[in-house]
Simulated scan of single mutants.
Amino acid sequence: MKLTGISAAVVFCATAAIANPVTPGDVQFDEYGAIQTSLSGTMGDAASGAKIMTSRAKGNCVACHAVTALKDAPFHGEVGPTLDGIADYRTAEELRGIIANAKMTFEGSIMPAFYKTSGFIRAGDGYTGKGAKEEDLTPILTAQEIEDVVAFLMTLKGS
């Protein structure tokens, strides 16, 4: 019976360790900007990812990218490439890196870094004459939300 209790404790501790998300400052990009492991430690949910991609309060990916699978969302943008069929030529690791910080893959990209909290250039407060605050910002998306968007993007395969 003791062995069962110890085994359960080991499984619980291992699961808890996996579920701890990687913080934005600890993200490891490879030389091409990909992130090899899940940021949240859990699989993404494609349905949640679709909602994030169309939510103006979150990712709002359709503001810049056309996505036929999200045709019910209004005003698809043309600033970025269409995301139709992206799973045919990008891996989940590449997509994770691009979403977290596209500049690690495409240096001149205007795509926002969705999982970055520091290193921004900020203007000061013009009304008070004070400089910008130096504390870290909150990331636009959480680790799990990035995994959800990656899961949705991996469903976008060509016909």
Rank of each mutant, 00 (worst) to 15 (best):
G77L: 10
K51W: 04
K51D: 13
T42E: 15
Q36E: 15
G44Q: 04
A14P: 12
T54H: 03
G41A: 08
I98Y: 11
A17T: 04
A87D: 15
T23F: 06
A57C: 07
L70Y: 01
S48E: 14
G85P: 02
V79N: 11
T23S: 15
T23W: 05
C64V: 10
G97N: 02
T82Y: 07
T54W: 10
A92T: 00
S48L: 12
P21A: 14
S38R: 01
S38K: 03
M53T: 06
A47H: 07
S55D: 15
N60V: 08
V67Q: 00
V11G: 08
D88R: 04
E78L: 12
L83M: 14
N20W: 03
G59F: 11
A66T: 13
I52G: 03
A17L: 12
V27W: 02
T68R: 13
E93R: 00
G77C: 10
T15Q: 11
S48F: 03
D72R: 05
G49V: 14
M43W: 02
Q28D: 14
A102D: 10
M53D: 05
I52W: 11
A87M: 12
N101P: 01
Y89I: 14
A66V: 14
T68E: 13
S40Q: 09
I52F: 04
A92P: 00
I35Y: 00
A50N: 07
P74C: 07
N20R: 10
G59V: 07
K71E: 14
G25P: 03
A66M: 13
P74I: 04
Y32C: 11
D45W: 09
T91H: 14
G59C: 12
D30A: 09
M43F: 05
K51P: 03
E93G: 02
D84M: 02
A69R: 00
S40N: 07
D88S: 14
V22K: 06
I52S: 10
F12H: 04
S55Y: 04
F12D: 10
N101A: 08
A14E: 14
D26R: 07
A19E: 08
T82H: 05
A66Y: 13
T82F: 08
V27P: 05
A73L: 06
A9R: 06
D30Q: 13
R56N: 09
D26C: 03
D72Y: 03
T91S: 15
V79Y: 11
V27E: 09
G44N: 02
I18E: 12
A9N: 02
R90E: 14
H65F: 13
Y32R: 12
H65V: 11
D88P: 10
N20C: 07
K58T: 07
G41C: 12
T23A: 15
V27G: 05
Y89P: 01
E93M: 02
R90Y: 01
Q36Y: 05
C61Y: 01
Q36V: 09
G97E: 02
I35W: 01
L95H: 00
